[in-house]
Write a protein that binds this DNA or RNA. Structure first.
Lengths: 336, 336
DNA sequence: ATAAGGAATCGAACCGTTTCGATTCCGAAT
DNA sequence: ATTCGGAATCGAAACGGTTCGATTCCTTAT
C-alpha cells in the first residue's frame, strides 16, 4: 500500500504538496496538480484514514448503538439518522449490544474512534455515558430520562412521549367502551413501560376509574412473556374486557393465547405499543400506539450535529406518538 | 483528555513504561505497575485507539455492509457474525447502503479503517471489492458468484444454495400436486433469484414438465411489486394452480391480492423464499424456503478470521436451505 | 571483588497524515 | 535597479500511541 511519501517521491514534489493537492487543490498550480493526481492514480494511492484521524483529531464517524439489530423498528430509526448524517458528511456505524466489555460499542466510545454517538442500547448506563461523553464526543440518548440537572453538558435526550402514548391507549379503550382493562407492563427497569402504564392509568383516572382497580402484571417484552402473562391473567378468571400490553411483541403473545382459548377480541380487546410491522399482519390486526422512529432518527442526528458543532446543554426533545386503530379493539356492543 | 504522556509525567516513569503497563503488565514490577494504574484511574486516561491503530497498522474492527438495516433476516446474520467475532476479539461495525460515494461502507474500505469486511450490499460491485481487498483487508462476499478464477486472492464467497432451494420449492409443489405453476422472480440483476428460478424449473423438468410452459414475471423484491405481478398474472386469466415467488416479501403481496380477489390457497397455492419472520404470521401462514442466515454469519466470520490470519484463496462455501411447510400450500385434492 | 545474566526501565524511532511558518521565485511597482 | 507582495512550494513539527534495542541496576556465581 503506497503512502503519501511514495506519491511525493514519484511526482518529485514534497509531501505537503501532495497533501495540498488532496485537500485544497486550488492552492496548487495546475501543472503540479495534474502531475500529482496522475501519480496518485497510477500508484492507486488512497490516504490512510487512521493517520488523518490522528492528526486532525476526528474521524468523521458517529456510532449508533442498538440493543439488537433486529426489526424494521430500527431500520426506520437508522433511515432517519442516515438521511441527516449524509448531509453532515458523517458516516454512521452501527453496533449491536456489546456482550464483551472490551468490544463493540463500549470500545468505540472508550477509544475515541467516533466523533459522536446515538445510544438506544439501554444496557449502557447513564453513568457510563456521562463518563465517555466530552466536548469532542457528544452523545444523544434515546428514550431515557436524565436525572434532573443534566448529568453532563454533552448528553442530549430525545424521547418518545410514552406517557402520552399510554394516555392515548387508555383513552381509546374508554372510547370503545372497555372499562375493565388489565395491563401487561415491561420489566421494572424499563422506564418506558412505566411511563406508558402511567399515561394509561391517567386516562382511566380522568374517567373516574382508579388505577387501584386495574390488574397489572409484569412481562419481559417478549412474545413468550406476553403469552405467559396472559395465561396467568386468564387463570385468575377476572371479569376483564381488554388488555393493554406495554409493547407489541407481548401483545402478539396475548393474541395467541386468546386464540388458543377461543376468546375473541370482541370479548377481550387487545392493544399494543410500538407499531412494529408485524402488527399490521397478525389476525386480528393489532391496534397499537405508533412510535415515530424515523422522526426520532432525524431529530437525534440533528441534535448530535449541533452538539458536534460545539453547542452545549441542548434541552431534551419529546416526540409524540399516534394511535393506529386496527381490528383488535372493536367497539364494545352497548350492554355492559 | 489526558494522553499517555500525562500519565507518564504524573507517575514519574517513561512513556514506554506506561504503555507496558497497559499491554504487557507482567513485564513491569508490581510497585510501578500499581502506581501507574492508579494514575491512569485518577486521570481517567483511556488510550486513543486511533493512535494505536496507526502504529500497529490494524484496528481490530471489521465492517459488515448491508443493503439496508431492516428485517430480522439480517439480525440473525449479524448474530452469527457477532458470536464468532467476539471470540476473535474483533468489533463488527455495520453500515447500510452507502448512498454517498464519500461516506459509509466505501469510505471505511477506502481509508482502511477496518481489518476485514463482510459484504452483502450488492450495490458494491465485485470489481470495486477486488480493488479494495488486500492481504491486510480480506473480504467475504455473501450470496454472489465470482467470475470463475477467483478475482482476488483475498476475496472469499459464502453463498446460499439458491438453486437447491428453488429445487426444493419445485419438488414440494409437485408433491402437493401443483402442475401448473407461475413464477414471480426478482430483478434481472439479482443472481440469487435467477438461481432459485433455475432450481425450480429443474424440479419440474425432472417431472417431465418443461420450463417453456411456465409463466415467469419479474418483480422487484418488494411487497408492492409482488402484488402488481400477481395482479398482472390474474389479468391474463391463465389456468394456474400455484405461484412461486423468489422471495417472501413479494409472496406477501401475492397473498394480499389473492385475498382481495377471494381466491383461496386451495385454488392457487403460494410459496416464498427466505423465511422472514413475518412468513409465520400471515394468514394463511406462508410455506417457504428457509435460508440459514445465522449459519451464514458464523461461516462468513470464521472464513474472514482465517483470511485475516493470512490464508489466501479460500474456496467458496455453499450452505443448504431447508423447506418450511406451512399452510399456503395445501395438498391438492385428487382431481386435476 | 568481579563478571555474568536477568529484570526493570528508558529513549527514540516510527506509523501516515495535516498544517504552520518559512523560503523561493517571479513579475509589478517605484 | 531595487523593493514589495503574492503565489507556489517546502521542511518540520505535531497527533498519541507501540516497540526495539540500549541502559541501568540487582543478584548470584566464580
Amino acid at each position: 500500500m503506497p503512502t503519501i511519501r511514495d506519491v511525493a517521491r514519484e511526482a518529485g514534489v514534497s509531501i505537503s504538496t501532495v497533501s495540498l493537492v488532496l485537500r485544497q487543490p486550488h492552492r496548487v498550480s495546475e501543472g503540479t496538480r495534474v502531475r500529482v493526481q496522475e501519480v496518485i492514480k497510477t500508484l492507486n494511492f488512497r490516504p490512510n484514514g487512521t493517520a488523518r484521524d490522528l492528526r486532525v483529531r476526528k474521524s468523521g464517524t458517529i456510532g449508533v448503538f442498538l440493543r439488537n439489530l433486529s426489526g424494521p423498528y430500527y431500520s426506520e430509526l437508522i433511515g432517519g439518522i442516515e438521511q441527516v448524517a449524509t448531509s453532515l458528511r458523517l458516516t454512521p456505524i452501527v453496533c449491536g449490544r456489546s456482550v464483551d466489555e472490551e468490544q463493540g460499542s463500549r470500545r468505540l466510545l472508550r477509544e475515541r474512534r467516533i466523533d459522536g454517538a446515538i445510544v438506544l442500547d439501554f444496557g449502557i448506563t447513564l453513568s457510563e455515558l456521562a463518563e465517555y461523553s466530552a466536548p469532542d464526543l457528544p452523545i444523544v440518548v434515546l428514550n431515557r430520562t436524565l436525572p434532573c440537572p443534566l448529568a453532563s453538558a454533552h448528553i442530549t435526550v430525545v424521547k418518545i412521549d410514552d406517557d402520552g402514548g399510554g394516555y392515548q391507549a387508555g383513552k381509546h379503550f374508554i372510547d370503545q367502551g372497555f372499562l375493565h382493562p388489565a395491563v401487561i407492563t415491561g420489566p421494572v427497569e424499563a422506564e418506558a413501560s412505566q411511563a406508558r402504564q402511567r399515561g394509561f392509568f391517567r386516562a382511566y383516572a380522568e374517567h373516574g376509574i382508579a388505577s387501584t382497580g386495574i390488574l397489572v402484571i409484569h412481562g419481559d417484552f417478549t412474545e413468550e412473556g406476553g403469552a405467559e402473562a396472559m395465561a396467568t391473567i386468564l387463570n385468575l378468571n377476572l371479569a376483564i374486557d381488554a388488555v393493554f400490553s406495554a409493547n407489541d411483541q407481548m401483545a402478539l403473545g396475548v393474541l395467541q393465547v386468546l386464540a388458543k382459548h377461543n376468546i375473541r377480541v370482541e370479548q377481550i380487546a387487545v392493544m399494543g405499543f410500538d407499531d412494529i410491522s408485524l402488527a399490521r399482519y397478525v389476525q386480528p390486526a393489532l391496534t397499537t400506539v405508533h412510535q415515530p422512529m424515523f422522526e426520532a432518527g432525524v431529530t437525534a442526528m440533528k441534535l448530535l450535529g449541533q452538539a458536534m458543532m460545539g453547542e452545549e446543554r441542548i434541552p431534551p426533545r419529546t416526540l409524540s406518538t399516534s394511535l393506529v386503530i386496527r381490528s383488535s379493539t372493536p367497539k364494545k356492543s352497548s350492554s355492559e
